Simulated assay, not measured.
Amino acid sequence: MTRHSHFLIALAIVLAMPLFMRSGSLASEVLIYALAAMGCNLLLGYTGLLSFGQGIFFGLGSYTIALLLTRWPLPMPLALLAAIAMGALGAAIIGSIAIRQRGTYFVMLTLAFAQMFYFIAYSLPGLTGGDNGLLDVPRPSLSVAGQTLWPLATPWQYYGFVAALFLVAFWLLRRVCDSIFGRTLLAVRDNEERAAAVGYNLRLLKLQAFVISGAVTGLAGALHAMMTGIAPLSNVEYHTSEMIIVMTVIGGTSNLLASLLGAAFYVLLGDWLSTLWPRWLLLLGVVLMVVSLGLQRGLWGLGENLWALVRHKKNKPDATAEPTESNPVERSGGLV
C-alpha cells in the first residue's frame, strides 16, 4: 500500500470514531496513545531499538505543558511546541548515551534512565508536584490576537484538535519512513555490520531516530495532560513505557498505521474489560499472551493474512463450473 492510501485509511478511522464512540475523551485517548506508539514504532520497527525510555519523553511533554500553562502562562500553541522540543531534547540526551550499547545492555540502559527519571520527578515536588503530580492543567482554546479559532471546551471539540495534530504527525512520519533516511534505518535494523561497512554513521542515525521519536512522544504527553487536566507522576513510570511498547507490538511493527490499530485495541479493550471485573488487567494479560503466541506480526499482519486468504479464494477457479464452448480441452476432459 502506498503512503497516500495509508493516510486515507488513517483519515477514515479518525472521521469514523465519533460515529461509533460515545466518549470524546476516550476517542482522544486512542489518538494520543497512537501518537506515542508511532514514536515507539520508529525506534522498534524501523531501527530495531527496544527502548523502555518512552515514558520519559511522555512525562516530559506532560510536565512541560503543565508548567507553561499554570505557572508561566504561555499561549497554548507555544506551550505545545515547547513540549515537543523538551521531548526531543530529553531523547537526544538519553539516546546519545544509550546507543553506545547494543542488545540487552541498550535495553537495560533505557530502563535505568526510566527509573532514574521517575525518582527525580518524585523527589522534586516543588517542580513536578511529586506524588500528586501537577493539577488543574487548563485547556485553553486555540486563539490568535484574542480571537478564538478553535474552542476546546467540550471533549469532542478537543478530539477534533487532537485528530488534526495526529493526522499532521502521521503524514510527517510517513514521509520520514518513506524517505532515504527511513530506508537507511531499515538497513541498520536488518544488518548493522553491513550498514556500517557501507559507510553509514550508525550512532548519528540512531540518535536522529531517537530525537524524532522523543518529539512525537512529547507531543502525546502534552495532549494527554491537557485532556485529563493533570500531569501525574504515573506518566513517567516505566509502566507507561511498557504500555506504549505493548501497543506497538500488538498493532504490528514497521507500520505506522498498525500503531493506531494497536493503541485502539489496547485502550478500547482495557476500557471494556474494566467494566466487567475490577482486576481486568488479568484478563488483558491473557489477551496479550494470545496475541503474542498467535499473532507475531500483530493485528496488521492478521489483517493482511485474512485479505490474502479472501483474494486467494476469489481468484481460485471453481472446479464445479461447466465447461465452455471456447475451451475444447475442458469439454473433452483433456488432450487425446
Rank of each mutant, 00 (worst) to 15 (best):
G133W: 00
L134I: 13
L134A: 03
L134N: 01
L135K: 03
L135W: 07
D136Q: 13
D136I: 13
D136V: 13
D136T: 12
V137D: 03
V137G: 05
V137L: 11
R139T: 05
R139D: 10
R139E: 08
R139A: 07
R139V: 11
R139M: 07
P140M: 07
P140W: 02
S141G: 15
S141V: 04
L142F: 07
L142W: 01
L142E: 00
L142K: 00
S143F: 00
S143L: 00
A145I: 09
A145E: 09
A145Y: 10
G146V: 11
G146Q: 13
Q147H: 14
Q147Y: 13
T148A: 10
L149D: 00
W150I: 08
W150H: 11
W150N: 01
W150K: 05
P151S: 08
P151E: 06
L152M: 08
A153I: 07
A153S: 14
A153D: 15
T154N: 10
T154F: 10
T154E: 15
T154Q: 14
T154I: 05
T154H: 11
P155R: 00
W156Q: 08
W156N: 08
W156T: 06
W156I: 07
Y158Q: 11
Y158R: 06
Y159N: 01
Y159E: 03
Y159G: 03
Y159K: 02
G160Y: 05
F161K: 03
F161E: 04
V162W: 01
V162F: 01
V162S: 05
V162A: 02
V162Q: 02
A163W: 01
A163Q: 03
A163V: 08
A163R: 01
A164N: 02
A164D: 02
A164M: 12
A164P: 00
L165I: 06
L165G: 02
L165N: 04
L165Y: 02
F166G: 12
L167H: 06
L167R: 08
V168A: 10
V168N: 04
V168I: 15
A169S: 13
A169Y: 00
A169D: 06
A169Q: 04
W171Q: 13
L172K: 00
L172A: 12
L173R: 07
L173G: 03
R174K: 02
R175A: 14
R175H: 12
R175F: 09
V176R: 05
C177K: 10
D178V: 15
D178L: 14
D178S: 15
D178P: 13
S179W: 04
S179L: 08
S179E: 06
I180G: 14
F181V: 06
R183Y: 12
R183G: 14
R183W: 12
R183T: 02
T184G: 15
L185Q: 06
L185N: 04
L185C: 13
L186H: 08
L186Q: 10
A187D: 06
A187C: 15
A187I: 11
V188Y: 01
V188P: 05
V188T: 04
V188E: 04
R189T: 09
R189G: 10
R189V: 05
R189I: 07
D190V: 14
D190T: 11
N191A: 10
N191H: 14
E192Q: 12
E192P: 12
E192T: 11
E193M: 15
R194C: 14
A195R: 09
A195H: 14
A196S: 12
A197K: 08
A197Y: 13
A197E: 00
A197W: 10
V198C: 11
V198T: 13
V198Q: 12
G199E: 01
G199V: 06
G199D: 02
G199M: 09
Y200N: 08
